[in-house]
Write a protein that binds this DNA or RNA. Structure first.
Lengths: 151, 151
DNA sequence: GTCAAACGTTCAGCGGGCTGAACAATATCC
DNA sequence: GGATATTGTTCAGCCCGCTGAACGTTTGAC
């Protein structure tokens, strides 16, 4: 059971995620950024956005997004302004520096064959992951497993 | 950029991992277990093992494994004994209860079509993940990215 | 206008990754 | 034997997920 091919799929995914994210460490650390912040910059590329919809798009809780945005703001990559129409809301916009570092990241990922080149059909893998995320991520609130025989 | 298919692959993997792990929550919570503990039970199925090699097999640091094993021990799923031949080492063995809950988990994963059934070719996905983990995970210590133009 | 419900955000605290540093036990070199 | 690695584990502390609870704002029922 010590070989990966016998592992539960969830574990396989999380280990793979950490390995890939680890390969970004040097890039991110030198820019006072983490991958949690990076995906926010990615999501903001289309334009400003409320913090809540940011959380929903990124598939994290509002609380987690709150903290991530706070760090991004401290690093100078996003700005936070109150929505004049609904003062509960905070509108997040990317700054020039944020746009810059995001562009760098996109370039780095595109020119990054050595890390993920190990996988035979990289695009197929991505396709299946997208499928998985889209089908399971539509409503994170639901309980995916049935009551599960309560012993 | 708000659609998953444009996300960095690392993010895709970690979101997918969380979604799949989330689907195990009910199973695990009712058994005082987490997926970090579950993979340890999985690795111990072949027999007892030092804590360090457990960490290496699971692709986590010794420190993380130390904490995970401590929780498993508190839950009564593993026992920890000093190695008589090398008193630095702690030998971890699974208990009867541990073996039981692991068997339940294996059964649950096998009978679990609805969660991951969304993916077209589930086995192919697993195969690619295994490939990724094996090729990147052989030596976690190496820096995978080159020096990355230091500005 | 007022009260209650819903919404958006934050605070507190936990699990699970990580790094860096400390420590005991072992191995090695003289 | 004694000084010096090296190994296995743990402690402190960080980031990023999570839940539960609190707070202010808005909306809606009355």
């Amino acid at each position: 059971m010590t070989e990966p091919h016998t592992w539960p799929t969830g574990r396989l995914l999380s280990v793979a995620a950490r390995l890939v994210e680890h390969s970004w460490q040097r890039f991110l650390a030198t820019r006072d950024l983490t991958h949690a912040g990076l995906i926010v910059l990615h999501l903001l590329a289309d334009g400003p956005c409320s913090q809540r919809s940011l959380a929903q798009s990124a598939r994290v809780t509002d609380q987690t997004m709150s903290r991530t945005v706070e760090r991004l703001h401290r690093a100078g990559y996003v700005s936070r302004d109150a929505d004049p129409h609904d003062r509960r809301r905070t509108i997040i916009s990317v700054t020039g520096e944020g746009r810059e570092v995001h562009a760098e990241a996109l370039r780095a990922e595109r020119e990054d064959p050595q890390v993920l080149g190990a996988v035979q059909d990289y695009e197929a893998l991505r396709g299946q992951l997208v499928e998985l995320v889209m089908s399971l991520g539509v409503d994170r609130a639901v309980d995916l497993r049935p009551p599960a025989e309560p012993d």
